[in-house]
């Protein structure tokens, strides 16, 4: 990933009205505190050397999922051209945590941002070949079915991307 790819990614996110924050492993917890609304649920991060702070409830119950305002998950891949984050489904309920609460905070490692869809689908083909499922998520959920564009249909109303450098 080049520096250009990361700034393209951030530009795409701005176009989507998605906020993003660059952070470091040291400032990670503080950053998360500033972009989450309580109650917060999370799915464990599959990143070496970084994990979610204790105040984020991982292994949530259905009740906690329903009551959470924010869900924090990893996005193991991101696509600069589109501002998309790719969330892999895991037994830790990553899919649910990214989907049910009003705000989804996606944690992306800078080195996992690829330039475009061809690179992303090369990676996705490896995941699916191993039997995995994933979602390429671009901005919040949305619908225009009620006569005007509304952000927040069945899924999150807002997305915040935290880039871990």
């Amino acid at each position: 990933m080049s520096a250009g790819t990361l700034s393209t990614f951030e530009q795409s996110l701005r176009r989507l009205d998605v906020d993003s924050t660059r952070t470091t492993p040291e400032a990670f917890e503080e950053t998360l505190a500033s972009v989450t609304l309580d109650p917060v649920v999370g799915a464990p991060l599959p990143f070496d050397g970084s994990s979610l702070p204790d105040w984020i409830r991982t292994r949530p119950t259905p009740r906690e999922l329903r009551e959470a305002k924010t869900g924090v998950t990893a996005a193991e891949l991101a696509v600069a051209d589109y501002g998309s984050v790719v969330i892999r489904a895991t037994p830790d309920a990553t899919e649910q945590v990214s989907l049910f609460p009003d705000v989804h905070v996606a944690v992306v490692r800078a080195e996992d941002v690829v330039a475009g869809m061809p690179e992303a689908f090369e990676r996705l083909a490896e995941w699916t070949a191993a039997g995995d499922s994933a979602v390429v998520a671009t901005g919040p959920s949305a619908t225009a079915d009620m006569g005007a564009l509304v952000k927040g249909a069945h899924g999150p109303k807002a997305v915040h991307v935290v880039v871990l450098e």
Binding site: Y82, S84, A89, T90, P91, A93, T94, E95, Q96, L124, W127, T128, G131, D132, S133, A134, V135, V136, A137, T138, G139, P140, S141, A142, G155
Partner: peptide, 16 residues
């Protein structure tokens, strides 16, 4: 440019 979600499901999915 792209819709909010492009899901790639390889069922049965690992999600509980």
């Amino acid at each position: 440019d792209i819709t909010s979600y492009i899901s790639l499901f390889t069922p049965p999915t690992d999600s509980p």
